[in-house]
Design a protein around this nucleic acid. Structure first.
Length: 899
RNA sequence: GCGCGAAUAGCUCAGCGGUAGAGCAUCUCGUUUACACCGAGGCGGUCGGGGGUUCGAAUCCCUCUUCGCGCACCA
């Protein structure tokens, strides 16, 4: 049943082997017909273009821990995985490849052929991140893996579009949107990242029309757009310019007379208090333009170059080059007053990382549904955000919520399910606004194409990728045509969502609204926001910096379990985490420690047979470790309730390494000696098995492969139990059930005293440079007349001999320590350096005196004595007694040293 | 500008009203029934500064400093 275990743990093969066995046995399958309570998570779908980074590792390890723990708590668990199609990222990746390999653009191929290429690419590379998640040990139900472009999923997306259109929540209009000149598409507000920018503030002057030599000075950061100026604006109450309102100024090039208008929006303090108004290229200017009925003069091409309206010398020039050129031209004309360094915020495209261009274009927009329900759900903790402070961020966004630009000028994605009758298409496409009421019979908005498709033209745009992922929790579990499904009934709403706070608006908020809109209820009960992983210096991980270690390398070197455990131990709830590879080394070391403790148990070579323990026959050390295990189980339960994963990891680590290995295992080694009492050996072994077995169960969610391996190797699986540790329920009864609790408490006190004494003895040895000396003799004058733990004490303290002598009168100069079990003497004939010992004891005495003083000061404070709670005062009195006794003893010992 | 975090041992972080902790690093010892990916022992902190509340503050409040993150149309 049990096998021999190698000396150092080699995770590589163990991990891949177990993962394959779990998969083969269908261990991850979520049973929608099961009778047990349901627990479900949907994975935040990674991009098909993605490769695993540490953020994924953190995020998915947490989900795996939750899923595995839930299974062991006796639930039917579904962890539903999948990927999303990542419109912009995937399309540009394939375009890039096309350019490199064939020197072609997507337009050279045409839409249909290009999309075939993207699918090919997806088939080839889209599975990478999935295989990496498998390497990590994720217990997802892969039989239910979904992709946002799956046919069934796509029908959901279309259905949702149609629903919203029919409700009047989706409309089309010509609006100012964020335009990415690199990806050549509109973006939503959320996809624009404001970045502080070192730029220049140009002050230029425009001549006032019809007046001799009168100029107005205007400050701008974007002189390259002045060709699109159609007005100049001042504050209506600005006395400097009051008389200008209604007059005109001369735009320098292309030369034109443009009006001076008044606008409340102008900040009189800023620059010169005069704003150039370029309605086509600035959102605020656009608003002013609307109010004053100004012409909209678009001087930019979609790719960010200037067009013919900017004038022949600028046509075709890139916007940043044009900025320099425009300033030069102004200077040549004598109209550039000054140029200053200036820091401002510029919006960047999240994906393409170039400055976005505000641009007027025809786009589809969504007025969000179920905003109130969503906001209320989070406010009331019906959906519980952890850490809670993200509630505020969420609420703030929900309050100021803006319509969502959902159309993208891409090919890869869900094409908008709108068809225009061919002969009307031209007109319909240009119509300023289009909604359910104004549409008419020349427009079809439907899940399926019209029957006479040949007479229709489909809208070319696709939908924002997030417009599909916001349906993820239910669209992965059911078909859009069916009312519901078995899976949905069993597993929706899901229990936990684990994701990063960076997508709280992109994804979390929208999923909540979608959940209410199409399922009539919340999509998940808890949202756990993970930390952002930074490098050791606190910088964000990025490819450019090269500071992002490849998790696969880490797993190859240390094992997936080590990576999981190491990361979880430092992952705080609520703040960023600085990654340090040493933490993963610790994870590996911990795995090895467990491995070897298990190996040690194997070396005792006794069959595994865990029956009920006979508590009466257990040693005090066994009772103590059982009590600690009991405590651990309680602490873990509480920590799980609050999702304090770092604490769980720390508790497991501490229990095993410090309490079990350092103390319990060492203090029971005597029971396995050749001449040991067989009864003691048997009861210690039984305790060891019980503790190890339970510990493997408790650790399993964090280190699934290693625990499963040991479970089998040691032979804990048993004849009739489940085939795998991962399927084994956590016992609900305490390991101490049926024990005499008073006896346990007594044992624990005694063990604490023995261990303390061991510490003092080791201390004494080290003080005299005998740390490694095994032949040392100790004399113990026991507190209670006898010292039955002398043998264990000798072993732990590394003593050759322990003589128990009640009332022992030490000769002068013998070093001694005062402990809970009595006085310990280290007789060192001829070795004692009296001066050194006096110094050492002197230090001890000083420390005791310090503590005593502190306590006395407190107790002398009348305010303290009258106001502090009774138990605190009682504790202080105890402390005083303790330190008083110690002071007395040390004084006596020093006296004993003689002179 | 508004809002939210963070600042504790050389490093990474716990602790969040009642005697300042862990791991790593460092120093000294050490192969005794697993483990050198190990064991034992040390060194190391006016808990960012300043005020306040309290019998008592790393912990609660105010303020300042530094860093990070959201949100915001100052051109």
């Amino acid at each position: 049943m049990s096998e021999e275990i190698p000396k150092a743990y080699q995770p590589g093969e163990v991990e891949t082997q177990w993962y394959a066995r779990w998969l083969d046995s269908g261990c991850f399958r979520g049973d929608e017909t099961g009778a047990k309570p349901a627990y479900s998570i949907v994975i935040p779908p990674p991009n098909v273009t993605g490769i695993l980074h540490l953020g994924h590792v953190l995020n998915n390890t947490i989900q795996d821990i939750l899923a595995r723990r839930a299974r062991m708590e006796g639930k039917d668990v579904l962890w539903l995985p999948g990927t999303d199609h990542a419109g912009i990222a995937t399309q540009s990746k394939v375009e890039q490849k096309l350019r490199k390999e064939e020197g072609k653009t997507r337009r050279d191929l045409g839409r249909e052929v290009f999309l075939e290429k993207v699918w090919e690419w997806k088939e080839e590379h889209g599975g990478i991140i999935i295989s990496q998640l498998k390497r990590l040990g994720c217990s997802c139900d892969w039989t239910r893996e979904r992709f946002t472009m799956d046919p069934a999923y796509s029908r959901w997306v279309a259905k949702v579009f149609v629903d919203l259109f029919n409700d009047g929540l989706i409309y089309r209009g010509k609006r100012m949107v964020n335009w990415c000149p690199k990806s050549l598409t509109a973006l939503s507000d959320e996809e624009v990242i404001m970045k502080a920018q070192k730029s220049k503030l140009y002050t230029m002057r425009y001549r006032v029309a019809g007046e001799k030599n009168r100029w107005v000075e205007i400050a701008t950061t974007r002189p390259e757009t002045l060709m699109g100026d159609t007005a100049v604006a001042v504050h209506p109450k600005d006395p400097r310019y009051a008389d200008l309102i209604g007059k005109s100024v001369i735009r320098p090039f292309p030369e034109a007379e443009i009006p001076v208008v008044a606008s409340e929006h102008i900040d009189m303090e800023f620059g010169t208090g005069v704003l150039k108004v370029t309605p086509a290229h600035d959102k605020a200017d656009f608003e002013i333009g609307l109010k004053h009925d100004l012409p909209i003069l678009d001087v930019l091409n979609p790719d960010g170059t200037l067009n013919a309206l900017a004038g022949p010398e600028f046509e075709g020039m890139d916007r940043f080059e044009a900025r320099v050129k425009a300033a030069e031209k102004l200077e040549a004309m004598g109209q550039l007053v000054k140029v200053e360094d200036y820091e401002n915020n510029v919006g960047y495209s999240e994906r393409a990382d170039v400055p976005v261009e505000p641009r007027i274009s025809m786009q589809w927009f969504l007025k969000y549904p179920c905003v109130e329900e969503a906001a209320a759900a989070v406010a009331s903790n019906a959906i519980h955000f952890r850490p809670e402070r993200w509630k505020k961020t969420f609420a703030h966004w929900m309050e100021g919520i803006q319509d969502w630009c959902i159309s993208r000028q891409l090919w890869w994605g869900h094409q908008i399910p709108v068809w225009y009758r061919k002969e009307k298409a031209g007109e319909l496409r240009e119509r300023e606004s289009l909604d359910a009421t104004s549409a008419g019979a020349d427009l079809r908005v439907g899940i399926d194409p019209p029957a006479d498709e040949e007479n229709w033209t489909r809208d070319e745009d696709v939908l924002d990728t997030w417009f599909s992922s916001w349906l993820w929790p239910f669209a992965t579990m059911s078909d859009s045509d069916a009312e519901s499904s078995e899976t949905l009934k069993k597993f929706y709403p899901t229990a936990d969502l684990v994701t990063g706070p960076d997508i709280i608006f992109f994804w979390v908020a929208r999923m909540i609204m979608a959940g209410y809109r199409w399922r009539g209820c919340l999509p998940f009960q808890n949202v756990f926001f993970t930390s952002i992983i930074r490098d050791k210096k606190g910088r964000k991980m990025s490819k450019q910096l090269g500071n992002s270690p490849d998790p696969l390398d880490l797993m190859a070197e240390y094992g997936a379990d080590a990576l999981r455990f190491g990361l979880m131990r430092i992952a705080p709830t609520g703040t960023d985490v600085k990654f340090d590879e040493d933490q993963i080394v610790e994870g590996r070391n911990f795995a090895n420690k467990l491995w070897n403790a298990a190996r040690y148990r194997q070396m005792q070579d006794a069959p595994v047979a865990i029956g009920p323990l006979d508590f009466g026959s257990l040693s005090i050390y066994s009772l103590d470790i059982l009590a600690r295990l009991d405590q651990l189980e309680n602490d873990l339960r509480l920590a799980y309730e609050d999702y304090r994963f770092n604490e769980i990891a720390q508790l497991l680590y501490e229990f095993w390494w410090s309490h079990y290995c350092d103390w319990y295992l060492e203090s029971t080694k005597g029971d396995f000696a050749a001449d040991a009492d067989p009864a003691a050996r048997a009861s210690t072994l039984a305790t060891m098995d019980l503790v190890l077995k339970r510990f493997l169960l408790l650790l399993h969610p964090f280190m699934p492969h290693l625990t499963e391996e040991l479970w089998e190797k040691i032979g804990y699986r048993g004849e009739h139990g489940p085939a795998f540790l991962m399927q084994t329920p956590l016992p609900s009864e305490s390991v101490l059930a049926g024990a005499d609790l008073a006896a346990v408490l007594e044992a624990r006190d005694r063990v604490a005293a023995v261990y303390e004494a061991v510490g003092r003895a080791r201390n004494l040895k080290a003080e005299y440079g005998l740390g490694a000396n095994k032949g040392v003799k100790f004399i113990v004058d026991p507190e209670e007349g006898s010292f039955p733990e002398a043998t264990v004490f000798a072993r732990l303290a590394g003593a050759g001999e322990v003589v128990v002598t009640p009332g022992y009168e030490a000769a002068k100069g013998v070093p001694a320590a005062l402990t809970g079990i009595g006085k310990i003497y280290l007789p060192l004939e001829g070795l004692v350096d009296v001066a050194a010992e006096r110094e050492r004891l002197g230090k001890e005495l000083a420390k005791a005196n310090d503590e005593l003083k502190k306590v006395n000061a407190k107790l002398a404070n009348e305010n303290f004595v009258t106001r502090a709670p009774e138990e605190v005062i009682g504790e202080m009195k105890e402390r005083r007694k303790h330190w008083q006794a110690r002071v007395g003893e040390f004084e006596k010992m020093i006296g004993n040293l003689g002179s």
